[in-house]
Design a protein around this nucleic acid. Structure first.
Lengths: 316, 316
DNA sequence: GCGCATCGTGATCATATGATCGACGAAAAG
DNA sequence: CTTTTCGTCGATCATATGATCACGATGCGC
């Protein structure tokens, strides 16, 4: 009982003294020695009072920024899913969420990428936005780009424009073809084999996460149909990464669709040291959560409401 | 313009970084070096970011206590009125305000009084309460008590009971007598002269502040009448200290009543190194403010609403 | 009453922090 | 294009802080 009391409350006079010490320290900016002199306490006692005040919540530090609430979410995401790193950007009404995720992802990568490293990239709107923002940094730091799948030519070309394209390596094929046999043939092409084996040596992979929803970029760009998506969903698909659909535990499904893809598989992706996913939005909550649970990604960049929704599901 | 910008806002990315640094520092308890390692910043830069965040209000420290708001009032009281010290106790519905002031005053004095010093005491309910609480400390530390006026016997006796009374020196007379000639005669008494000159040597004086209101203790104890108070008020009196009434600037009035007092005058009171006043309540706002403005007191102990009211009047 | 455990205290020392300085680089002025 | 000025950066050093230790007081059980 005595311990509990000590942990939860102060004697009334002690609270006054503690508050006064904290006020001088944090508000007036006095040193602990100065406070001690003024209040007739030893410096060490002032130090201990401050520590006690902090531990007991009497002293509360508020970070007056929209980012404030995000860092707690990041810490929980990292802990629960064993991520190397999580980045959560604050909720905000204005502005396209993909743009803001792309901004965050590019800033993360700018801080990570060292000269002459290699970045493998997946597929999706957020990935494209990120690369656009990174363009200058990439050329300046002599970073190589390599694609993880087919179908990325269109936007990577734009990014690579204006600099020597010698260190941009694309899989010269669509993301999906119409028959398994064609996919096999393409994957056997010497140039394709070369790019894919180069992708396996990348230091980082930047990927998007797709939801199994009608708004998916895969459908919008004609690589898949709504009816296919409906079938995937019935088979337990909750999301896709580089065209590979997985269930709620992040385990890839056995779908005919996968056989028609031109790109790396999950095993090869996991072999890349750091897989960075940038994705957010209400439709993608389950897809992101499953990818994280399955250990498909090492770094997650998402937004605050999405992070909250993801964690809420794992509370129970 | 550039300066103004720097002072008021961050670049968006800088705010994120700054928030992150602050979060690690204050929330996670990491050292500046650890944060620097983690975010690829030099330690010194982390230090500067934190300082910047503090200066710009991004980092806000809240003291989660009812005392929180009081210290700002104390600082302003000290500054505006040139007090050595101000103590403001938090607003609270429960409990008698005089008791709480007496508690605060006794704690203040316990911290100040050194062994074998001498405390001169004035007149009033708060002073009495303070002395009761101090009784044990006084005898333990061999503190001498001396009265500033007559009329204190009743309650000082109680305080002094149980210990040798040799270092309690009272003016053996009422506070007020009925005629000027009698007052003069008493003041000329050898014993009275001795006690009064001893009072002048005290290290501290503890006094109350009276309002010019019908509830005043002076009226309740029969030393003055309501009609007298009405006259004092018409002459500009806003309060009294040890029976001496003063105007809104703290300047003593020239009243016949003062000639019938047995006790020290303002000049003698001011000569005491530290005059400590404990007083509070809505009726006393003007009395306290005038005393402070006139430099009648060195230390003020009051309550939060009273302090706010006093300062509000001096805002304009 | 006498150890024994526990807590609070201050002394001492290692570490964390922030002040100062000179150097560098970018932007503005010539 | 050169020069100047300003601001930023990190190195160095003085100071502030907190970890550890040993002591003395207090309370508890034997």
């Amino acid at each position: 009982m005595n311990e509990a009391y000590d942990e939860l409350a102060f004697e009334p006079h002690e609270e006054e003294l503690l508050s006064r010490v904290a006020w001088h320290y944090y508000h007036d900016g006095l040193t602990q020695s100065e406070i001690g002199d003024r209040l007739n306490l030893s410096r060490i006692k002032v130090s201990r009072m401050l520590e006690r005040g902090r531990r007991m919540g009497l002293i509360h530090v508020h970070i007056n920024s929209s980012y404030g609430g995000c860092f707690a979410l990041e810490a929980r995401l990292q802990e629960i899913y064993g991520l190397d790193e999580a980045r959560v950007i604050p909720a905000q009404e204005t502005g396209n969420i993909n743009d803001r995720l792309a901004e965050a992802a590019s800033q993360y990568l700018m801080g990570r990428l060292k000269d002459q490293e290699m970045l493998a990239v997946g597929w999706g709107a957020t990935v494209m936005g990120t690369l656009q923002r990174l363009a200058r940094t990439l050329s300046y730091r002599d970073i190589s780009l390599v694609s993880l799948t087919g179908g990325v030519s269109a936007y990577i070309e734009g990014v690579a424009s204006g600099r020597s394209s010698q260190n941009v390596h694309l899989i010269p094929a669509p993301l999906v073809v119409s028959q398994e046999s064609i996919a096999e043939a393409i994957r056997a092409e010497r140039h394709v084999v070369e790019v894919m084996s180069m992708a396996r040596t990348a230091n980082y992979a930047l990927i998007g996460i797709g939801a199994v929803a009608d708004e998916a970029t895969l459908i919008a760009s004609g690589y898949a149909s709504r009816s296919q998506f409906e079938i995937f969903r019935r088979q337990g698909a909750v999301g896709d990464i580089i065209g590979i659909f997985y269930d709620q535990n992040g385990v890839p499904l056995d779908l005919p669709f996968h056989k028609m893809l031109v790109g790396l598989d999950f095993e090869a992706l996991s072999a890349i040291p750091q897989v960075i996913a940038a994705a957010g939005g209400p439709k993608k909550v389950e897809a992101i959560r499953a990818a994280a649970r399955g250990g498909r990604i090492d770094v997650l960049i998402t937004d605050e409401p999405t992070a909250e929704a993801i964690l809420e599901k794992d509370q129970a």
